[in-house]
Each structure stands twice: as C-alpha cells, then as structure tokens.
Design a protein around this nucleic acid. Sequence first.
DNA 1: ATTGACACCTAGGAAGCCTATGCCTAGGTT
DNA 2: AACCTAGGCATAGGCTTCCTAGGTGTCAAT
Lengths: 116, 116
Amino acid sequence: MPRLLGMELRGHLDLLLLGTLHQTGPVHGYALIVALRDRSDGAFKLPEGTVYPALHRLERDGLIDSEWYTGKPRRRRVYRLTPSGAAALTAKRREWRTFARGVQAIVEPDVREGWA
Amino acid sequence: MPRLLGMELRGHLDLLLLGTLHQTGPVHGYALIVALRDRSDGAFKLPEGTVYPALHRLERDGLIDSEWYTGKPRRRRVYRLTPSGAAALTAKRREWRTFARGVQAIVEPDVREGWA
DNA sequence: ATTGACACCTAGGAAGCCTATGCCTAGGTT
DNA sequence: AACCTAGGCATAGGCTTCCTAGGTGTCAAT
C-alpha cells in the first residue's frame, strides 16, 4: 500500500487565511473576508459560513488567537497570528509552491511562450 | 447572504487526472498514477484508493470513458478523454489559473514574475 | 517459494466547505 | 415609522472529497 501523501490536495483555505492575516496584521473576521476578496482581485469571495468556522478551527489549533474588541461602531473579534501560526504559514507556503509547481507541470507543460 | 463561490477551493484532483490523460492519451489507471508521480517530479504520489474511485466518478460524469483491455501482460481498464472531458479540462485549467493567481497574490504579494 | 511490482477494487470514516439560517447594530431611505 | 442594506458574528446539517485499510489476482525475479 502506498504511504501517506504528505502533500495536501485541499486545505488551501488555511494558507489563505494565515497569509492574509500576515499581510494585514490583527483584524476581525469580516475584514478578513473583504481583504481576501480585494487582494485576490475578486477570485475569493468566501462566504461567512466558510470563514468563521475556519477561524475557530485555526484558533483551536493555536495558529491564531483572538480578543473581543468592544468599541465604538460594533463589537468585533480581532484575530492575530501566533508564533506557531507564523511558522505554519511558512510551511504551508512551501507546500503551496510544491503543489502549484506540480499542477503547473501537469496542466500546462508547454509554457515555453515561444510564439514567434 | 454571499452568493455561490464559483471558484473551487478543492477538487483539483479532477484537473490533474484529466490533464494527465490529455498528455498521455489513453492509459490505464495504474499508469496514470505513475505518470502523475513522474511528471510532477514526485510531488503527487496518489494512492490507488484515491485514483480509482476518482476515475469511476469521472466516468460516471461522462468526462472519460473506458474499455477493458484483455491482452498480453495483464488485464487493464483503459481510460480515454471524452469530448465533454476535454471541454471540462479547458474550463478547469482556466479555473486553476484564476485560483493560482489568487493564492499567489495573497501568499507572496512581493513576486511579480507572473507565471500565468 | 517468496518477494515485489503491477493492476484492479471497495467500504468506511474523517475532514473540509458551503448553504441556509439565526441574531444583533448602525445608517440611510421612504 | 417602517424598511433596507451593510456590517458583524455564529451554528447546524449536508454533501463531497480524499485517504486508510483492507481485499483479489498476475507476473517476473531471486
């Protein structure tokens, strides 16, 4: 029997969340959704039912932590990357590169651009 | 409520299978596993329990079809891309580019190098 | 004779994501 | 006043996907 894959075929959502959080600094969930949409140029319009549970999962796993901000306009839960989360981001970034390179090789093997 | 995503976060397996099949021409499942491993430079060592059910699913959906080859060394089920499958490949390729560009923007915003 | 590569298959479960829904506040419109 | 829209959080339930872990059997080499 073949061994474990080691390479994630899915689960790129965590990478996206962690990566955005790293770019923006501490933000609340809804802002994360907006940032993800804007920074991906509209590619990632993640529904709330996707993002909030994912954030809970990431917090449960210690990759982010949160704090209630009870301030002027509305109450918000502000998330922050933990050291462990930053490390995970680095690892997932590397995994992503491997994954993307692999897919690229399979999917568009003829990227020579030699159109002449 | 946010609308449908339209963008697949997972499901890249189908793209890989279809893409490999397109490169190799008609092949049997096991050869597909080997091709996927070799062409991805070792990134995709897919277990049989992943590939065979996926092939059945693709066939069920009409994207590939198959034929038993009862020949010299061993019996094999040879799969072939259908026209509908080729169309799906084109669509999924485009989706992949959007997806990859999006992730790239989130994850490594400081790389211009546009590979797509 | 036993190992290992080849070749197919399925059941079952874990995890992921999305739909749909709920609650609440603030600001604007009618 | 009543309504709507955007902001903000949350959960339940279902569907799909992938992988683990088995199973069957052939063929070549040690």
